[in-house]
Structure formats: structure tokens, C-alpha cells
Simulated assay, not measured.
Amino acid sequence: MTTPDHDEKTPFRELSVTFAGSVEVLSRTSDQIRVRMRCPACRGSTEDDIVYGVAGTKGGTTTLPLSGEQPFICACGYPHDGRPPEALDTGCGAYWSATVPS
């Protein structure tokens, strides 16, 4: 499985990185936005759902607005070297903030 430009040799590291790419909105409802972007560390395609609701409840995962600055973590789905088996994410470990268009 290869994504164009994905760097499979990027080792797993939990590291804050700077995001300078673009965020693509795939779908939007009144309480959820699905977005896609490239991880700034491994350049793998990452998709995420931003759900509005009270944190820690079944109804949602964020109390932040659905647009504006949002936190993200790589979810490229590739097996990066050094990724611990107990890691909950499915990417290279990089995390960043990106602006979601309104």
C-alpha cells in the first residue's frame, strides 16, 4: 500500500510538528466535519472527524467550534518503524494544529 509522496521510512516519534498544508473538508453536518490533509512529518494522507459535543460523552469529542484551529495526530495507517504495539494512533506519531475552514 503506497500513497504518493508518503515517506514510509519516517520512524515513529511522538513529536509536535508545524502544519503548513491545506485542510480539505470532505463532509459537513451541523455537528460533525470530516477532513483530510497530509501529515507534515510522513506526508501520509490523514482523515479525521471533528465532532461537536461535550468531551467525554457519547455525543461528541470536542467542545471546540467545528472550524478554526483544531488538534490533529497522524492517522496515515502505515506501520512506521519503532511504533510501540500499545500505541493507540495508526500513524507516525506526529501531531499538529491546523485551521479547518468554516
Rank of each mutant, 00 (worst) to 15 (best):
residue 64 L to A: 12
residue 16 S to Q: 09
residue 36 R to Q: 10
residue 76 C to Q: 01
residue 9 K to G: 11
residue 4 P to E: 09
residue 38 R to Y: 03
residue 33 I to C: 03
residue 35 V to I: 13
residue 91 G to I: 03
residue 19 F to C: 09
residue 34 R to F: 13
residue 29 T to R: 12
residue 20 A to M: 01
residue 33 I to H: 04
residue 7 D to A: 09
residue 76 C to H: 01
residue 90 T to F: 02
residue 75 A to R: 13
residue 71 P to L: 07
residue 33 I to P: 00
residue 93 G to L: 08
residue 66 L to E: 05
residue 32 Q to P: 00
residue 87 A to W: 15
residue 60 G to V: 09
residue 60 G to S: 11
residue 52 Y to H: 15
residue 9 K to P: 00
residue 42 C to G: 04
residue 78 Y to H: 15
residue 46 T to V: 15
residue 59 G to C: 02
residue 11 P to Q: 06
residue 16 S to R: 13
residue 46 T to N: 04
residue 88 L to S: 14
residue 38 R to L: 09
residue 76 C to W: 00
residue 94 A to C: 02
residue 16 S to F: 12
residue 24 E to V: 13
residue 62 T to M: 06
residue 23 V to M: 10
residue 89 D to C: 09
residue 75 A to N: 11
residue 90 T to Q: 11
residue 17 V to F: 07
residue 92 C to R: 00
residue 63 T to V: 08
residue 68 G to K: 08
residue 55 A to R: 15
residue 33 I to G: 00
residue 68 G to H: 11
residue 26 L to N: 06
residue 62 T to D: 07
residue 72 F to N: 02
residue 10 T to S: 07
residue 63 T to C: 05
residue 67 S to G: 14
residue 50 I to F: 08
residue 30 S to P: 01
residue 64 L to N: 11
residue 68 G to W: 12
residue 21 G to Q: 04
residue 24 E to P: 03
residue 97 S to W: 11
residue 67 S to F: 03
residue 100 V to K: 05
residue 24 E to D: 14
residue 61 T to W: 01
residue 85 P to V: 06
residue 51 V to M: 12
residue 60 G to D: 04
residue 51 V to Q: 10
residue 1 M to H: 13
residue 64 L to R: 15
residue 99 T to D: 10
residue 95 Y to S: 06
residue 61 T to L: 10
residue 61 T to R: 05
residue 48 D to L: 02
residue 84 P to H: 06
residue 94 A to S: 13
residue 15 L to K: 14
residue 48 D to A: 12
residue 46 T to P: 01
residue 56 G to K: 04
residue 61 T to F: 06
residue 90 T to E: 09
residue 41 A to R: 14
residue 81 D to K: 15
residue 21 G to F: 09
residue 8 E to W: 02
residue 80 H to S: 05
residue 48 D to M: 09
residue 59 G to W: 07
residue 64 L to E: 07
residue 31 D to C: 08
residue 48 D to H: 13
residue 79 P to K: 13
residue 93 G to Q: 02
residue 38 R to F: 01
residue 15 L to E: 14
residue 86 E to Q: 13
residue 83 R to G: 03
residue 92 C to H: 02
residue 6 H to S: 10
residue 63 T to D: 12
residue 10 T to L: 04
residue 39 C to V: 03
residue 62 T to H: 05
residue 57 T to L: 02
residue 31 D to M: 05
residue 76 C to P: 02
residue 98 A to R: 04
residue 39 C to W: 00
residue 21 G to M: 11
residue 91 G to C: 06
residue 36 R to Y: 01
residue 55 A to V: 09
residue 87 A to Y: 14
residue 82 G to C: 09
residue 59 G to N: 04
residue 6 H to K: 11
residue 36 R to H: 04
residue 96 W to M: 05
residue 48 D to V: 00
residue 96 W to K: 02
residue 53 G to D: 04
residue 56 G to N: 12
residue 24 E to M: 10
residue 17 V to N: 00
residue 2 T to A: 10
residue 13 R to I: 05
residue 91 G to S: 04
residue 94 A to N: 07
residue 75 A to D: 03
residue 72 F to D: 01
residue 22 S to P: 07
residue 23 V to C: 06
residue 2 T to V: 08
residue 39 C to L: 01
residue 6 H to I: 13
residue 2 T to P: 01
residue 82 G to W: 14
residue 93 G to Y: 00
residue 63 T to P: 02
residue 20 A to P: 01
residue 14 E to N: 10
residue 17 V to W: 01
